[in-house]
Design a protein around this nucleic acid. Structure first.
Lengths: 231, 231
DNA sequence: TTAAGATTGTTATTACCATAACAAAGTATG
DNA sequence: CATACTTTGTTATGGTAATAACAATCTTAA
């Protein structure tokens, strides 16, 4: 009786315009990974409690996060793993044939290009560029490295969604400008600088140095906890 | 007159036992990097406002963050760049000759080993281990790759603070166990798994897949913002 | 030396995120 | 078929982090 008692309920699949908090965004890939692992083990169902335990967060958090995007579970049962995984893939924009270009064929660039996992989610690196004549012409992950001066004409001919910057810090901004001018929508930046880009372009930083410093700080704190106060 | 009007003031250099919020911890390396850039340009002074502008945060945030560790600035003047940089280095535990071992000599491991920046902060990779006979014996970044079966005896003979895991996901936990048993205090983990370690060991994850998915999500959202609602 | 201006360190306020609570509604079982 | 149990989606509460505000005090310049 009374089909629409709780407002929303089954009928909440309109366009959602609410802003998703960044903290939630950072958890979405973790949900995706856990569900992919469960699916690989042919597990059929999972509860918010189980997911929460693995992530060391509260079950309410899991339910609240997912409810931002829809109602994917069943009371008294939980979530069907394959269904929720599929929904999360859609939410994250995976398996849509996203194209990337990589700029910088140094050690880090090579590691990224050879990192096989991305292919699983439908990401494909279409071309690699470098400035160094020693690197141009080499084959990395099956692609011949091109001269970075070909970047702009390439993007004009072959539109690409994401650009990866694996260059040294001093040239990163210049490369970013070229990528933006070439119509790139997102930049995955491994150079230790804060890039200036228009608001329409998304930037995701991976800052190895900052990560190691964070670890260093935590170690130092742990150490002081044990040596500092003699309580 | 009245030297100790504001309680604390110059005299707040006791042991601080307050827990530093993780959000603050993540900003500390960014302050460090900005200050290092200023110092390299021989800039002498900087205000919280300038730092905040670069990081797109509020000036109060900068002052509040730094005040957790001491009083480093001067009213009406700001912060002396070199002094504050030096203090931040101490806070972060940089330039203390921290020793690391790297496990996993694949593409990513090689990139990490060759990433020159770490040396600047006093981190040194002392040894590299791998399981693959094809990789064992190779020279990476001036080090000969050892058999991972030598890891435990190595750590017994040569204590090391941090272990880097650049192995495939399925063996990461096993490696982590060995590192912990070997007395490691921190783990820098590049494998896409949540490691189980004792509370005494710090883990810093670098999860490339999650980072790319985050970018993918943000791109999808941007796209929906422009196409979805016709307002 | 004095007064105007600048900027810190700290406390107060606001906003946001995480946890708790609970009604709704399904599952499982006898 | 009824009853106990489970678990969701959502709202209420609590706590933590970001911003605002301000007194203290240093700098700078006349």
């Amino acid at each position: 009786m009374s089909m629409v008692r709780n407002k929303g309920g089954k009928y909440k699949h309109e366009y959602k315009q609410k802003a998703i908090p960044l903290t939630v965004v950072k958890r979405l890939p973790v949900y995706q990974r856990l569900l992919a692992e469960l699916a690989a083990r042919d597990v059929e169902r999972v509860s918010s409690r189980e997911l929460a335990t693995q992530m060391k967060i509260d079950p309410s958090q899991v339910r609240q996060d997912l409810s931002l995007f829809g109602s994917f579970g069943q009371q008294g049962y939980g979530y069907r793993v394959r269904y929720l995984l599929n929904e999360l893939n859609k939410i994250l924009g995976l398996n849509t044939g996203t194209k990337l270009v990589l700029v910088g064929g140094g050690h880090l660039g090579r590691a990224i290009a050879n990192y096989g996992n991305f292919v699983k989610w439908g990401f494909t690196i279409k071309a690699i560029f470098d400035r160094d004549p020693q690197v141009i012409g080499l084959t990395i992950a099956g692609l011949t490295v091109r001269d970075v001066r070909e970047l702009t004409p390439y993007l004009r001919a072959e539109p690409v969604e994401i650009g990866i910057i694996c260059t040294p810090a001093p040239v990163a901004q210049e490369v970013a400008d070229q990528l933006v001018a070439g119509g790139i929508k997102g930049i995955w930046n491994f150079a230790p600088v804060a890039l200036r880009v228009p608001e329409t372009v998304c930037v995701e930083h991976v800052h190895l140095g900052e990560s190691l410093m964070t670890l260093s700080f935590m170690l130092k704190q742990r150490q002081e906890e044990s040596t500092g106060p003699k309580k």
